[in-house]
């Protein structure tokens, strides 16, 4: 695929807009929110990220990654117009059809907004299908917030309630959002659990403290969704890496309900 556009999101974090070089591939390609792919720089290897753009936005896909290892380091060095490899889509999806007529509460931390961005935009593009949409997003610092332009857009939309927060000490003098960790802010915002689906994605520590708050707010295990990220190589249930107990994150996930998570052994 061709790297059509590069956006600098935060320090070491970039978004690539990718377009299929072969029109036939573009024609055949279909995916749903929640799925992931294997992105590669030839000679460096493959890396697993979710597709961060919504399936309702046709003609391209996007991925957002932080420069961290060999492959992401090589990806970060690419310029617009260069070519990368892509395999996918793999994995299961967010059941957005089942969520019709409900309120949606998105809770994300740091670099975990990208796996949620696909479903946020997907549901915003089908806005009439859902009632209230609330997004709570936190990062370590103002600088670390990704998709700054889109955060602004969501903030300005009357049909979205956006709450942004940064960790104490991460604020700038003109920061107007919340200051505090995501679970604390969630408790403060206290969205109603009535007819609401909560979608949570973030670092393990954030998730660990967010679930009890949601439970306190009355959310049941079936109404809480998250997307797991385990190390993967193949993406289709063979290489033996991503399994949590008998479940493959790449086949049975990455999207799980809290009810399903509670049935899994602690191996993620």
């Amino acid at each position: 695929m061709e790297v059509e556009k590069i956006t600098e999101e935060a320090p070491e974090v970039k978004t690539f807009r990718l377009k299929f070089k072969n029109p036939e591939d573009a024609e055949k390609f279909e995916f749903k929110a929640g799925q992931f792919g294997e992105y590669s720089v030839m000679g460096e290897g493959e890396s697993t990220f979710c597709i961060a753009s919504a399936p309702t936005r046709k003609g391209y896909i996007e991925c957002t990654f932080r420069k961290a290892g060999r492959v992401t380091g090589a990806l970060a060095n690419l310029e617009e117009g260069e070519t990368i490899g892509f395999r996918g889509p793999y994995g299961n999806v967010f059941p957005i059809d089942e969520w019709k007529g409900k309120n949606l509460l998105y809770i994300a931390g740091g670099i975990a907004l990208p796996p949620m961005r696909c479903v946020i935009w997907n549901t915003l593009d089908l806005r009439e299908n859902y009632k209230d949409i609330t997004i709570i997003y936190g990062a370590r610092s103002v600088e670390d917030l990704v998709y700054k332009n889109e955060l602004k857009e969501w903030e300005e939309r009357p049909d979205v309630k956006l709450v942004t927060t940064v960790d104490p000490g991460g604020q700038t003098p003109d920061w107007k959002g919340e200051i505090g960790f995501v679970p604390t802010v969630l408790e403060k915002v206290a969205p109603s659990s009535k007819d609401t689906i909560a979608i949570v994605c973030g670092p393990p520590i954030m998730i660990k403290y967010t679930f009890p708050v949601l439970e306190k707010l009355g959310f049941t295990d079936e109404t809480i969704y998250t997307t797991l990220e385990n190390r993967m190589k193949c993406g289709f249930g063979k290489c033996g890496r991503c399994n949590v107990g008998k479940y493959f994150v790449c086949k049975d996930g990455p999207v799980f309900t809290l009810k399903q998570l509670k049935e899994l052994p602690d191996e993620y």
């Binding site: 290897g45 493959e46 063979k238 033996g240």
Partner: peptide, 10 residues
């Protein structure tokens, strides 16, 4: 045993 890795070599 069939666990595998995928690596590039140039």
């Amino acid at each position: 045993c069939a666990c595998f890795d995928i690596q590039d070599e140039t």
